[in-house]
Simulated scan of single mutants.
Amino acid sequence: MQYTNTQDQVRILGISGSLRKASFSTAILRTLARKAAPLMLIDVMTLEEIPFYNEDLDRSPGSSAIARLKRSVVESDGVLIATPEYNHGIPGVLKNALDWTSRPAFQSCFRNKPVSIISSSLAFTGGVRAQYQLRETLIAMHAQLVMGPEVVIGGVHTKFADSEYNDETGLSFIMESLERLRVEALVRRTSMVAY
């Protein structure tokens, strides 16, 4: 399915699973935001302001940071999550944010939302275990995982120059994945209009 007119532009929320100031995950998202424009507008979000999940706090009016995160997911056409791997899994800060957005139960703002994942690590494995763990969580939240070859970036620290992801082969592969996300987002938008 090919899309060529100006209505092909999609708004993607890019969520970084790392809080580090010089985070590779955040830098990858920022590189992609520049490369993917104008067909994809990627709004990069970090999770510094998200409090620990506490069901006692999960009621109106609630945290403004949580409200902003949920609104950003709802208003996006799709979500792109970039995460490092910590101890064979996803960082606690990312799981925490997903726990907030999974509520209320069975009514998550991620429900039926197209989502793509990029995982990375200093090791050659590229965060594959984090990717699988993240997929499990997103499936439980009824997100629509975009199918295709998984994007994993091994030896991520060797693929940057001046805070810019500069692995051309890897970038080409990632852009193909982003195109699949864009198409899924457009299909979902079209189906929603039909109803």
Rank of each mutant, 00 (worst) to 15 (best):
R11L: 07
F124G: 04
L94E: 06
E176C: 08
S108E: 04
R71D: 13
Y195P: 04
R71P: 08
E164Q: 15
D8Y: 10
M141A: 10
D99S: 13
S63I: 02
V187G: 05
T4W: 14
A123E: 04
M1Y: 12
G92T: 06
D162Y: 11
A65L: 02
L29R: 02
P84G: 14
F24K: 14
R11A: 10
I28Y: 00
L171M: 13
F124E: 14
G78W: 01
L19F: 03
I50C: 02
I90F: 08
V193M: 15
M147C: 08
L94H: 02
D77I: 06
A194W: 13
V79I: 06
R135M: 11
S18D: 01
A36W: 00
G155E: 10
R30I: 05
S16G: 11
Y86R: 03
S191A: 10
S64T: 13
L94Y: 03
R34G: 06
I117A: 01
Q9C: 10
L39D: 14
I50V: 14
F160P: 07
I28K: 00
S163T: 13
R34Y: 10
P61H: 12
I42H: 00
W100Y: 12
P38I: 05
I153K: 02
Y195E: 15
S23V: 11
R103C: 06
L98F: 14
R103E: 06
D162R: 12
V156Y: 05
S63Y: 04
P91M: 12
E150P: 09
V128C: 01
G89W: 01
I117N: 03
T31L: 02
K21I: 12
S177G: 07
L181I: 08
V146Q: 13
D167F: 01
P91Q: 14
T101P: 07
R71H: 15
G62M: 05
L145R: 04
A123N: 06
S76T: 13
Q107L: 03
D58P: 05
I42L: 05
R20F: 09
S172G: 11
